[in-house]
Write a protein that binds this DNA or RNA. Structure first.
Length: 476
RNA sequence: UGGGAGGUCGUCUAACGGUAGGACGGCGGACUCUGGAUCCGCUGGUGGAGGUUCGAGUCCUCCCCUCCCAGCCA
């Protein structure tokens, strides 16, 4: 069987972490099996769907390196086909018009709940007589169209992740609505379960891979496949990504959009790596830090976990830092230079820039950290509390004075690590202090704080602007 | 409430019925400036009770907990 899978996002919001992970599993499976990965935009809810979200979804997938085959299917463009299918179902007696009002059904559900029952449509209009129908129409009622679900029906499928699944028709909430309310002589807007079946079939989807929150939909959809005499695809229901409370991730949980992660300074490699790791376990001997192209050669649902996983910032941060450490200085500089420009910072030379990112790279977790860490090299910093304290030590002034005098005899252009180290050693000896005191004082004077990257290399970079002298002398 | 899916260190996970291991985090040390870099070490777990078995995270029974669905949303 030729593998054809799809991602079917609804453009009612930006590309969500959960959707992106589903995309990844579909993509990985398609790549592994030499199949095709398709995209279908489910924009049948016209009220909530927006063009800008479609673009956000495309951008996010591309950024993650999840490329799709063929041009995306736009669901709303297929509405006539969907209505035709609904008409067929009605004509064949699989579906019927239900005139019950929403208020009437709300009341029905309320009563059921009060009596400790699960809310469920009671199929009250399944067998209306033509007389009853015309009565409703005459009174101005418009119907929805419902697909019959027999209480006795047993539905089962073999899930690639969960094994054999079985549902009973009586647990599917009664006859399901497949078309919105519309005048009786027409067909209303087709709804989710119907359009999914219609489109998955039309797109010749072989495997439906989606979150486990769709389990009940799958049972309903199988009934539609059977009624329409269509081939039933293979199903795989993936575990979900949960928030730290163990609930389904929602917009309320803060950052959940791929575009937001990108903006914060996460790399696409780390995001894809982490999303794959949540739910899929690496075979023995393979490092947890991987590229999805490597996984696409070994991906299997056998290694996909059944239980949902809680999202963990620490692990994502670690992966992101690993990705940054692996970057060449050239690549890292390419990532940072636009951010530097936004702050009005200009590199004195490309080589200087390379040395700078080489220095700060190892301590970056997010790409955006590079901005904070580079800042002291471009802009003079206020003294921090502990920096101030360090410079209040009485030897500090003596040390700085000594170094400043020596610097004035030194050529800024040829200042080097060796010369910097030599100066520090000279100061240590001449001022009769511990080397640590010299270095801490110098760090405080040059950068305002007591922590940062390697002091000697930092000093050499700073000297390129002759800023080292200026910064020391301001304190004397 | 009904149905469904799940439950191994704090988190993500590994373990033909055969020593519960790894990663992240946390804690401690090293790097004779800092540390959010790097290296080393430590910490910590099979939801509960029975049962089968020489031996149970794994098999059986009962219980508990969590999540998902129960829309004329997708």
């Amino acid at each position: 069987m030729k593998v054809r899978v799809r991602l079917a996002p609804s453009p009612t919001g930006t590309l969500h972490l959960g959707t992106a992970r589903t995309a990844l599993f579909n993509w990985l499976f398609a790549k592994k099996e030499g199949g095709t990965f398709l995209l279908r935009i489910e924009d049948t809810d016209i009220e909530r769907s927006r063009e800008e979200y479609i673009n956000d979804i495309y951008d996010g997938l591309q950024w993650l390196g999840i490329n799709w085959d063929e041009s995306p299917t736009i669901q709303s463009e297929r509405v006539n086909e969907h209505k035709q299918i609904i008409k067929t179902l009605v004509d064949k007696g699989f579906a019927y018009k239900c005139y019950a009002s929403e208020a009437e059904l709300d009341e029905m559900r309320e009563t059921q709940k009060r009596n400790g029952l699960a809310p469920k449509y009671d199929n009250r209009h399944r067998n209306l007589t033509p007389e009853q129908e015309s009565e409703f129409i005459k009174s101005g009622r418009d119907p929805v169209i419902r697909f019959k679900i027999s209480d006795e029906k047993l539905i089962s499928w073999n899930d690639l992740i969960r094994g054999k699944m079985t549902w009973s028709g009586k647990d599917l909430g009664g006859d399901m609505v497949i078309a919105r309310r519309a005048p009786a002589n027409s067909i209303g807007d087709p709804l989710y379960n119907l359009v999914v079946v219609a489109d998955d079939s039309a797109m010749k989807i072989s495997h439906v891979i989606r979150g486990e929150d769709h389990l009940a939909n799958t049972a309903k959809q199988i009934l539609l496949y059977e009624a329409l005499d269509l081939n039933i695809p293979v199903f795989a229901h993936t575990p979900l990504i949960l928030n730290s409370e163990g609930k389904k991730l929602s917009k309320r949980d803060g950052v959940t959009s791929i575009s937001e992660f990108k903006k914060m300074g996460y790399t696409s490699e780390a995001m894809a790596n982490y999303m794959t790791l949540l739910g899929w376990s690496v075979p023995e001997g393979i490092n947890e830090r991987f590229n999805i192209s490597e996984v696409s050669e070994i991906f299997s649902f056998k290694k996909v976990n059944k239980a949902s996983a809680k999202f963990d910032w620490d692990k994502l941060n670690w992966l992101n830092s690993q990705v940054i450490h692996e970057m060449s200085a050239e690549t890292l500089l390419e990532n940072l230079e636009p951010l530097f420009k936004e702050n009005g910072w200009h590199l004195p030379s490309h080589e200087w820039g390379i040395n700078l990112v080489g220095l700060i790279g190892p301590s970056m977790v997010l790409i955006n950290d590079g901005v904070d860490q580079a800042k002291p090299f471009f802009e003079e910093q206020e003294l921090s509390e502990d920096g101030k304290k360090q410079l209040e030590i009485k030897e500090a002034a003596v040390i700085l004075k000594f170094i400043l005098e020596k610097l004035e005899d030194t050529d800024a252009a040829s200042f080097s690590k060796e010369k910097a180290l030599d100066l520090i050693n000279q100061a240590t000896k001449s001022c009769e202090v511990k080397k640590g005191l010299v270095m801490k004082s110098l760090r405080a004077a040059l950068f305002g704080t007591l922590n940062g990257p390697d002091l000697i290399q930092s000093w050499v970079l700073l000297s390129r602007f002759s800023k080292d002298r200026a910064r020391i002398s301001r304190l004397i």
